[in-house]
Design a protein around this nucleic acid. Structure first.
Lengths: 196, 196
DNA sequence: CGTCACTACCTATGGAGATAGGGAGTCCCG
DNA sequence: CGGGACTCCCTATCTCCATAGGTAGTGACG
């Protein structure tokens, strides 16, 4: 059910089409949550049925139209209720760690390739997270700008600091992954001899 | 499909019943992978159908029987093939971070309760991880003992070090979560005033 | 006027995972 | 010998999520 609230969260900043939301989920917000459009469109329909969002059909070009979704009061209330609810603890289940616990069965070069892959993915991710964090701090983050307009100036610092806090956690996690992969590569070199 | 390989991984140490495997998944191995028995039993049946495991019905008490699963050569081969395959990168998707990015909408006490919950969960988890890591190092880890018996002495250090490496990564992650939760609690105190 | 990247919206399908049960046997303790 | 905790095996159901498609309009470029 988190997808629903992730959508509501985005819609608290401004009205958007399903396509806009989908873009966000595969770009900036993807650090916090991700969903393909095949999940988003049906969910938006359900949310409209449940009265959490309103849709307005707006013209787009000579013949086309698009549906812009706007959060309703009921939607805002539902979002706020969710944010105050106790956490649902998610078991973390990463195949990378499962594999790493049995690396003695692996071909050293395959193991190296995997750790390099892990390193590459998390380094890139870390870079993006750092850039997003910075764009929050200097208020160049696009969604943040829409969001801040809805709040008085004296609230801005508070809003930004919570978001930076979230990114700090994500950055710490990503850094740990990068460190871990590097350590693994060194370990393989030590136990199996230098790479070929 | 990771469940299948997690099961094979455990069965490389010794034959087990579905119940044994289920116990492992909710106890020691739960740090790396988790599955409820409702997933395990059907998967074992499919694995037997696919020839990755053999089952032997052994008597248990006067009337009862139990089915002990043993990995086959085909199973070992499949496991090894999997371990050498490139990683399937998993997007991390933790509702705790989604919520934390919108904490300005939350009631401060609810936010505090959530972070305390996060802190408690990860502190406990961290403790368990550290204990498991130690039991690997001093060879008191139960599954490890079975596993080492199957390998010559000179391999033991290598096997243990890979497992410790996996745990080191998990411990680093859990530590990051603990740090993050503490930082969040301090942030709320700073922004909203001390807790009531 | 064609084509190409992009915007916009949607469906089908299947696997994974969580939750919630059921039913039968064992073993020990009081 | 009865009750309770535990062992053992299994099914049903529902949500989530990923993958892989499909259709139609837009706007810019050559």
């Amino acid at each position: 059910m988190s997808l629903r609230y992730a959508l509501l969260a985005l819609l608290t900043s401004r009205p958007m089409t399903g396509y806009d939301l989908s873009k966000h989920f595969s770009q900036s917000v993807a650090h916090v949550w991700y969903a393909p459009d095949s999940q988003i469109y049906p969910e938006l329909n359900r949310m409209e049925r449940d009265g959490l969002v309103d849709s307005e059909t707006v013209p787009w070009g000579p013949k086309g139209t698009k549906k812009e979704y706007r959060i309703t009061d009921a939607g805002t209330a539902a979002f706020q209720e969710w944010i105050n609810e106790p956490l649902v603890i998610r078991r973390q289940r990463d195949p990378a760690y499962l594999k790493s616990a049995y690396l003695e069965w692996a071909d050293p070069d395959a193991a190296r390739a995997q750790l390099r892959q892990h390193l590459e993915y998390w380094s890139g991710h870390l870079q993006l997270l750092k850039e997003s964090r910075q764009s929050l701090i200097d208020h160049t983050h696009p969604t943040l700008q829409y969001r801040l307009k809805k709040f008085p100036e004296e609230e801005h610092d508070r809003i930004v600091r919570y978001k930076v806090f979230a990114y700090d956690g994500l950055i710490d996690n990503a850094s740990a992954e990068v460190r871990w992969a590097r350590k693994g590569l060194a370990l393989i070199d030590e136990l199996e001899g230098e790479s070929t």
